[in-house]
Design a binder for these strands. Structure first.
Lengths: 209, 209, 209, 209
DNA sequence: GATGAATGAGGGTTCATTCAT
DNA sequence: AATGAATGAACCCTCATTCAT
């Protein structure tokens, strides 16, 4: 927020941001502690408030970063020329799982954001979240060719079924990774296989091909 | 938990429990305030700890109540003689929505519980949650006749698709109610209609009948 | 204090008094908890204050009991016909050690009393303590024949040396028992032997015989 | 402990330490109040915990200071070239009395420490106390020539008699000062005289010279 | 005689934020 | 640009005592 912060070296900036994200990924907005953040970031107490003015401001800045980051990487990750919905959905959900594996704190922070209900930040978050999910949804459906979907089914509903089922499915998968029930090796073998089986079923049911 | 508390008059008990549930449905375990609870409950500062010994104990007691309550009402609500999965799933999800409409704080509290990550209560909650969801899942699938499901699809996966899709779908529906985007009138007309349309699609796709 | 308490059955009275002594033997007057006392005594909270009016009153009543008890048993224990100071001192210190072994809480309570500095009770305790120690000292020296003490030494000082040395010595012995460094078996063999060796040395040094 | 505290000005540091020692010299660890400490020290409520992290930490820090202080001053005070046990014991006990006169709170605090039984600090205190008394005992007996002690008496026991008697004797003396029965003037005249008389008696009894 | 529910003050501790340095 | 000392409110919890039952 404060331009001073942006003029910092990248490494130092990252250290601070990571310490903050770590804290907010573990605790609710209210119970997150700026003391712990500065301790883990290795900076003086005053600087956090010099850079970000307030805990609220810091939090909302992190939300922006997390959302933007998420969207930018998504844009890079998705194959925009892919016209098949099922392949696109595969990419989208693999993206989420890979993000969780690579940067679990960031991922957990994103999850925490949408559940945050502290009145101090709730409305602002809802607003940011709406903006982002609209963009994401648009991106996900861009250039998708739905012409091979069965004509006797409302295509929009069909798409929703596929999307929302995989939302649940991927959440469950990530929870298993999170709790150590499955490890990454399992993910790379069995989970992907199972994932494709679900895709195949839904594809067979819903398309003419 | 404490017999003292149970011997209180029902009205007073409810006042206290509601104040506590209200607080825990709005804030994480850590940031929930026993001060606010006693203020809203209209009782003296010491009494909460006389009744419940500690914040943790109170919280876990509320979790027990919420889980038991949820299961008891579910048992009453479900038509155990219903053999059709789609009708059963309809009941199950209507149950959730009606619960949200009737007792939104309790419902929100249940949601908060599963997201709670405070180390003081996390493990105990996980344990209680596992016990309950096992029971619920058993109940949901009891006496269900899946013989009319298409033989060319793995029935277990088919069931998962249906269940997990509606999980997402109902969450979204409740969020719309929560944010006032839809009102109860809308739910009773359009949402139910849409709900049935989804059921019909999935039924048509997955069964022979 | 309240006659009601005295009309209780002996067993119940003892239960209450023991619970209270236990508490005051572990904690200072201020930090002793009437809650813990009633819980351990198995009586209602109100009764403690009905019997004793206040924590202070209860405490001072216990002090009286402890002091009286200590003196009465001492009177019984000491052989008043014993004229030899060294034998008398042996008895006196054995009395203390045996009391610690038989009723450690009571003994510890007596120790705590003399160290108590809470302004609420300090003066009253000092008064009671002075009365008792005067009586005890009188009793200890009654009928003692000091005629065989060396004439070239101030007899009063000689007596003090013996008394006060054994005060220290017995305190150390009891501390070793308390900390489990020595057990009762050790006391009955080696400690008594050592005790007698000290007595023999002091006797040889200070008397003509 | 915390460097923050050590960087304070000496005057402020002393004010805080004195306020804390005062409190802990008057009350048991449990009933000592950090509220009273900060009020008497004239600092904000949070600072005590900023400096010392916790009541327990503060207490153990004070114990360290008190023990170190006691030992350092003792080393300075004792004439290490003095070979005579009686002179050494004289110095040792005079040291204690002078310390009580000069800094009664510190002295009382030292007494309270050894009687402390709160489970939160008991073990740590026992450990520190053992370390210190071992050092002190070593220092007290260093370079002492016991060759003139009577050969017909176990020298170790003889030394114990002298040491432990004076322990009691000096405790009693200090208690009289404490209770205002004797004043410092009395100490400087009559007490010292009496003290020397006891020393003379014990010296005469136990040595050949 | 006897109970234990009720109170509010005070216990130790952590907090976000400010500001002199 | 950077530090961390300082504050007081709020945190959870325990207390001695009273009093309606």
């Amino acid at each position: 927020m404060n331009s001073t912060f942006n003029n910092l070296g990248d490494e130092k900036k990252d250290t601070i941001l990571n310490a903050a994200i770590e804290e907010f990924s573990r605790h609710s907005y209210k119970s997150a502690s700026t003391n712990r953040i500065v301790k883990n970031a290795g900076i003086g107490k005053g600087m956090l408030f010099y850079y970000f003015k307030s805990k609220k401001n810091l939090y909302l800045y992190l939300v922006d970063i997390a959302f933007n980051d998420f969207m930018e990487n998504l844009v890079d990750f998705l194959d925009k020329s892919e016209k098949d919905l099922f392949n696109r959905i595969f990419q989208w959900n693999i993206y989420k799982i890979k993000m969780f594996i690579k940067e679990p704190q960031k991922f957990n922070f994103l999850m925490k954001i949408s559940a945050e209900e502290s009145p101090e930040v709730k409305n602002e978050i809802k607003r940011k979240y709406s903006l982002m999910s609209e963009k994401a949804y648009e991106l996900l459906l861009k250039n998708i060719d739905l012409s091979n979907f069965r004509k006797d089914i409302d295509t929009e509903k069909a798409v929703n079924i596929i999307f929302w089922f995989f939302d649940s499915y991927v959440n469950k998968t990530i929870n298993k990774l999170r709790e150590g029930i499955h490890d990454i090796g399992h993910f790379e073998n069995d989970t992907l296989k199972e994932f494709n089986e679900y895709l195949e079923i839904l594809s067979r049911l819903m398309t003419d091909a």
